[in-house]
Amino acid sequence: MTGLNKLGGRTWVVTAAALIVLLVINAVLQPNFLEPSVVQSNLTTFLPLVLVAIGQTYVILGGDIDLSVGAIVALVNVVTVTVIAGLGGDGTAVVIGLVAGMGVGATCGLVNGLIIAGLRFQPIVTTFATSIVFSGLALWVLPQAGMPVPEPYWRTYAGSILGVPTVYVIYVVAFLIAAVLATRPFATRLKAVGGLRTAAFQTGLELGRLRVSAFMLSGLFGAFASLCLTGETASGDPLMGQTLAMSAISAVVLGGTALAGGVGGTLGSVLGAWVIGMIGSVIFFAGLPFEYQTLVQGLIILAALAGGVLVTRR
């Protein structure tokens, strides 16, 4: 037990252990689990949640929370799909559509950040209110699900770039962004803002700018997630991504980032997202009746949370 106590603050080690256990169970239940195509298909399924969880980590580190990211995913999806269709659906149109989608994500994050940091609003209620606005706008852009994306889009997403599966390229790029950000002063300053806001302010940190940047990152990673989901579904859906925000928050907390802010990191969140994905997969392959899946998934997540807290508690 003393050995476990030394983990203090590094809940992600526990999460990693949980992930390994889940991987072993899944490998036993699903014989072809380690085949490259199955690994790739699993990682593809988990990718949107991983991306949203990375973005959410920055917001939570800064002591805020972003409930609107699910609505951002929907808005980015419908804007991208509509822009691509409006421009004729060729290669240039796809590129412009992707840029437009990322622009929408970053802008939504900017709006959240400006309202919360600039006007001193409470993040939970504010991002809930903006999520209503964002999903309203998504329904305005595209009232009904439909409007397919051109074939090159989803073919590229399911295919590979220079011999490497596109999904892995996206993972690497996302990890690189997270790794670079982790070495920048930004990460330390953001933790200071989330840890002790008054002290951070008194040492002269630009709180507003840091918090707005965190929300923009969340919006941007939400956009990445949305573009990936669009690659999977190959069509527009104004109701896409509704459960993503809550799952991402669970992933971030599972990964050891404190909801109070100031402690944690993106590595843990990625592990947390994978754990949540693997729980779903294990339950599926354990052949549990469909109606028990939500219950068991909920119980496991609660148990994992309680376990992580107990183990790292000082």
Binding site: I115, L119, R120, F121, Q122, V125, T126, F128, A129, T130, S131, I132, V133, S135, G136, L137, A138, L139, W140, P143, R197, T198, F201, L207
Partner: peptide
């Protein structure tokens, strides 16, 4: 969608009146 946008906007407006946190 219009109802949604106005509903969300009104909530933000109400918060502007007194849902704000203390100044540092």
């Amino acid at each position: 969608w219009g109802r949604q946008v106005i509903f969300g906007g009104t909530l933000l407006l109400l918060m502007l009146l007194y849902g704000r946190q203390a100044r540092l």
